[in-house]
């Protein structure tokens, strides 16, 4: 799947002396192509996460359009857009993202269980947990895990349905070097297997894994 932002911008209303409108993301054009890992770096508050959320259908742009294989993402109803997120997208949100009442295994299986695709998914979830070194925690609950372990769980969950597009928002924050390398190599691997990957990060070493590099500054995306 190809995702393309065309003049996509997002502003928020705030009471300020100069203006009531704050642009988190200025008009932006961005294309995520299958098999390509796009790395977007920038300081905190530069608009990276807002852009990622617009691209993955979680935040409607104030202006412009996001196209998914030629289809306006935000013209879809909530049901269709949610289904698309579930089936085609894998999203790794910033920060802890465990569903506290589910075990780690259930958390990883959740996207599949949500629409009744539970058959044979347990084995795949187990393999992913094994791959990320947290198989021994499959029956634990998120509050029993460290930040790094939770991040690995989130990545496993994002990969469970083999998404066509993978969104990762600061997936290496709080991780040690070893885990950072593991996560970045997993994202690289997903791209190599044909997924379009959007990685938003502070991590300097991430550039080495990317196909296209972007920088974000005050809501303006500058390319490659």
């Amino acid at each position: 799947m190809e995702l393309r932002a065309e003049g996509a911008a997002r502003f928020f209303l705030r009471k300020m002396k100069s203006s009531n409108i704050i642009y988190a993301v200025q008009k932006t054009d961005l294309t995520l192509e299958p098999g390509q890992l796009a790395v977007i770096s920038g300081r905190s508050g530069s608009g990276k996460s807002t852009l990622l959320n617009m691209m993955c259908g979680l935040l409607k742009p104030s202006e412009g359009t996001v196209w998914a294989d030629g289809l306006d993402l935000y013209s879809l109803g909530d049901g269709a857009l949610s289904r698309l997120r579930n089936e085609k997208f894998g999203i790794i949100p910033q920060g802890g993202s465990g569903l506290g009442s589910l075990t780690i295994l259930e958390n990883v299986m959740a996207p599949a269980l949500m629409y009744g695709k539970g058959k044979e998914i347990r084995k795949r979830a187990g393999n992913l947990l094994e791959r990320f070194g947290i198989a021994h925690l499959s029956e634990a609950f998120p509050k029993e895990l460290s930040g790094g372990e939770l991040r690995r769980m989130a990545i496993a969950r994002a990969l469970i349905l083999q998404p066509e597009v993978l969104f990762a928002d600061e997936p290496t924050g709080d991780l040690d070097d070893e885990n950072t390398a593991l996560v970045l190599s997993v994202l690289r691997d997903a791209a190599d297997k044909g997924a379009a990957v959007m990685l938003v990060t502070h991590e300097g070493s991430a550039a080495a894994y990317g196909d296209v590099l972007y920088a974000m500054h005050d809501g303006v995306l500058s390319g490659n």
Binding site: C56, L58, D78, G79, S82, R83, R85, N86, E87, I91, P93, S97, G98, L99, G100, A110, P111, M114, Y115, R157
Partner: peptide, 15 residues
């Protein structure tokens, strides 16, 4: 945040 996480994995507003 828990509800937002549900949305990221494909839950509709109705869910």
């Amino acid at each position: 945040r828990e509800f937002a996480i549900l949305r990221t994995i494909g839950a509709t507003a109705g869910m």
